[in-house]
C-alpha cells in the first residue's frame, strides 16, 4: 500500500503535508516472453534521498532500472516521476524530465572521446557552448582523471575510469534522479572504494540517487533506505542501517553465515 505508507501520521495540530515522492513505482510487472522478471514491485525515492536496491544475480535489479528509464516496457503497474505517470513515455523523453542512468556494464561509447561522451550526456539540453564548458568543468572537478584524458577514446581507459565517465555522463544531463546500476561491477576493491567515495560526494551535494548493487554492505552504508529484491519481488525494506543489521540480509548478502 504505497499511498498509505507515504502519509505520515499526523500529530495533533500538525498540518499533513502530502509530499509527492520524486519517483514512485507501483506494482510494476515486467515480462521477457514467458519469464516474469518483475512480479509487482513497489518502491519510492524522495527528493534528496539515496536509496539502494540490493539483491543477487537475476533478481530483477537491472530490469527494474531499465523499466524506470524506459528501456523495458512494463506489462503492468505504474512508474510516476514527480507525480506524473511516465509508464508509457519513451525512454528518450524521460531524460529531459530529469532521469539519468549510468547503466550496468557502463556502456560508454568506446569509439568516441571522453569529452564527446560527456557532451552526449547533455544531448537533450540544447545548451550553449559556455554552459556546456561550465558543466564539463564541474564534472572534471569531481573526476580529475577524466580531464587529463578528455581527448582519449573512451574504449581505451580502464574499467574504473569508464565507470566514472558513465556517472559523469549521466550528470551532464543535470538530472533530478540519478540511477546507478551496479557501478562496482567487475572493479577492483580499491576502485570500488573510490566509486563509493564519489557516491558519498554526490549525496553530500544533494543529488537524489537510486543505487542498485550487489555490494550490499557498502550500498546500505551509503543509503538512507534500502530494498531487498529476490526473484522479482521486494522481500524486505527499511532504513539502510537497519537492513545492515538484519540477520537475513547478513546471511544472504553480507557473506555471513
Amino acid at each position: 500500500m504505497p499511498t498509505a505508507a507515504r502519509c505520515r501520521r499526523s500529530m495533533p495540530g500538525e498540518v499533513i503535508v502530502a509530499e509527492t515522492p520524486l519517483l514512485q513505482v507501483e506494482g510494476l510487472e515486467v515480462r521477457y516472453g514467458a519469464i516474469e522478471a518483475l512480479k509487482g514491485v513497489s518502491l519510492e525515492v524522495r527528493q534528496g534521498e539515496v536509496v539502494t536496491i540490493i539483491g543477487g544475480n537475476g533478481a530483477g535489479k537491472s530490469t527494474l532500472m531499465k523499466t524506470i528509464s524506459g528501456l523495458e516496457p512494463a506489462a503492468a503497474g505504474r512508474v510516476l516521476f514527480e507525480g506524473r505517470d511516465i509508464t508509457r513515455l519513451p525512454g528518450h523523453l524521460r531524460v529531459p524530465l530529469g532521469i539519468a542512468q549510468s547503466p550496468e556494464g557502463r556502456q560508454v561509447f568506446p569509439d568516441q572521446t571522453i569529452r564527446d561522451n560527456l557532451l552526449l550526456g547533455a544531448y537533450h539540453r540544447n545548451a550553449g557552448a559556455a554552459e556546456l564548458e561550465a558543466d564539463l568543468k564541474l564534472q572534471f572537478e569531481t573526476f580529475p582523471r577524466l580531464q587529463e584524458r578528455q581527448r582519449q577514446m573512451a574504449g581505451t581507459i580502464s574499467g574504473g575510469e569508464q565507470q566514472m565517465l558513465a556517472i559523469a555522463r549521466a550528470l551532464m544531463s543535470r538530472p533530478k534522479l540519478l540511477l546507478l546500476d551496479e557501478p562496482s561491477l567487475g572493479l577492483a576493491p580499491l576502485v570500488v572504494r573510490k566509486i563509493f567515495g564519489v557516491i558519498r560526494d554526490l549525496k553530500a551535494r544533494g543529488v537524489t540517487i537510486l543505487l542498485v548493487e550487489q555490494m550490499a554492505n557498502q550500498a546500505l552504508a551509503v543509503a538512507e533506505r534500502g530494498y531487498v529484491i529476490e526473484t522479482g519481488r521486494i522481500t524486505l525494506q527499511g532504513r539502510g542501517a537497519d537492513l545492515r543489521r538484519d540477520p537475513k540480509v547478513r546471511a544472504a548478502y553480507l557473506g555471513e553465515h
Binding site: S69, L71, V95, L120, H124
Partner: peptide, 11 residues
C-alpha cells in the same frame, strides 16, 4: 554503438 545507451542520452 548501443541503442540502449543512446536512449539514455535522450537520443
Amino acid at each position: 554503438q548501443s541503442m540502449d545507451a543512446a536512449t539514455l542520452m535522450g537520443i
